[in-house]
Design a protein around this nucleic acid. Structure first.
Lengths: 140, 140
DNA sequence: CCTTTTTATTTACCCAGGTAAATAATTGTA
DNA sequence: TACAATTATTTACCTGGGTAAATAAAAAGG
């Protein structure tokens, strides 16, 4: 029987470790992991409103406002007004688009390294377990 | 084949969810999850230096300084000088000791709820997988 | 014994998550 | 149409993670 305190302690430790490591890798490109998450999202879905972004990333609106403000300062994204004047549509800059593939490769490689001690089977188990930890329990 | 981007995205999402939920439960007791982690640690090992705490929790020294300062303000811990005058030994207050069991019960119940959709087998898999994500790969 | 190095803690300053409340624009409705 | 409710975003303020550099005390060496 595993002590749940130990389990959650380990979970937090590992996530801190993974995030720290991820940020260190990304620092070579002048990015942080949250900024990369937004960049990935925009490359995948095209220009999005901030609401679409925070709903997809499952964070609160102020978090996205802040991170996007920083990304705009560092010339990763631009914001234009949407059809609805309340909306701000976020879009990758040309510079971001140019750098995207290179960063993506580095991130992908790093992710592979991080899970390199897991078997294919374990990766699947991990994914399924994580789904079950969510509010929808993995059916959504 | 699972996309590693999706896997890490899910990992971060779930950890945010779990942490937020955890903090909400603890708010009834006037605590945050990091403060609870320190309280748990002190109950388990007795009075400790700050260095012993941050090494055990796997966070940096300034993080622990900050959190302990807050806990001291809220009468959860006291700091006395150690034999080595550089050290500050952290100890639970009487109030913290009195409240400990009650909070522990609530936390334990919440942790059980969080993993309620996992089988015993999956909890073990989860623990093993998390170990393999660390720098030591689970052998340490 | 004095100087250098190491160790424990703190300070200042980042990024990133959260909540509560304020704007501003749009929708819904009497 | 005027007013109320909703929606998108922002602001202010909290916790908590990190790094780099500053203290202060202890340990190590000449």
């Amino acid at each position: 029987m595993i002590d749940t305190h130990d389990l959650f302690h380990l979970l937090h430790q590992r996530v801190r470790f993974v995030t720290k490591d991820f940020n260190q890798q990304l620092s070579a490109h002048g990015l942080y992991h949250s900024q990369w998450a937004i960049m990935y999202c925009l490359e995948r879905f095209g220009p999005m409103t901030q609401t679409a972004i925070w709903k997809y990333l499952n964070v609160e609106a102020p978090t996205v406002t802040r991170t996007i403000t920083r990304m705009e300062k560092n010339d990763w994204v631009i914001r234009r007004q949407g059809g609805d004047k309340r909306e701000r549509v976020v879009e990758l800059t040309d510079r971001a688009k140019k750098k995207y593939e290179q960063v993506n490769q580095a991130v992908y490689q790093h992710e592979q390294d991080t899970i390199s001690r897991l078997t294919q089977e374990e990766v699947h188990q991990f994914y399924n377990i994580l789904q079950k930890l969510g509010p929808e329990g993995g059916e959504g």
